[in-house]
């Protein structure tokens, strides 16, 4: 998991797998960025993530909650076919703001 800062926007690039093994790490990363570094605009870049399960989805919902509490925004970028299918099945496609890539997500903040 890699965090890069682009002005006031933080981009978190997740690894190849987003499952129960790493879900706590994503939640903690977002919490630290929002609570301790006052970052309120966060993009979760799923571009490298080939596998996501419900624990990964849960960590995205938890991250969204943290940001909403801090009056922030979270966007999801670059989901794979598998991720998009899972978001539809869990109806989280109606909850998340989803973009094809990081650039589109970045533009949506302006």
């Amino acid at each position: 998991m890699e965090v890069t800062l682009h002005g006031e926007v933080a981009v978190i690039a997740t690894d190849e797998k987003l499952d129960a093994v790493v879900a706590p790490q994503l939640k903690e990363t977002v919490r630290k960025l929002a609570d301790e570094e006052n970052k309120r605009k966060i993009i979760i870049d799923l571009g490298k993530t080939k596998f996501i399960d419900s624990s990964g989805c849960g960590s995205l919902v938890a991250s969204l909650r943290v940001l909403t509490k801090n009056r922030g925004e979270m966007k999801i970028a670059g989901p794979s076919r598998q991720a998009k299918s899972l978001f539809e099945l869990t109806r989280l496609d109606r909850v998340f703001e989803i973009f094809a890539d990081v650039e589109s997500a970045m533009r949506s903040f302006r």
């Binding site: 399960d53 419900s54 989805c57 849960g58 960590s59 919902v61 899972l86 099945l89 869990t90």
Partner: peptide, 8 residues
């Protein structure tokens, strides 16, 4: 934040 697994 949970409860999706069984639905899947």
């Amino acid at each position: 934040v949970s409860g999706y697994g069984w639905c899947i």
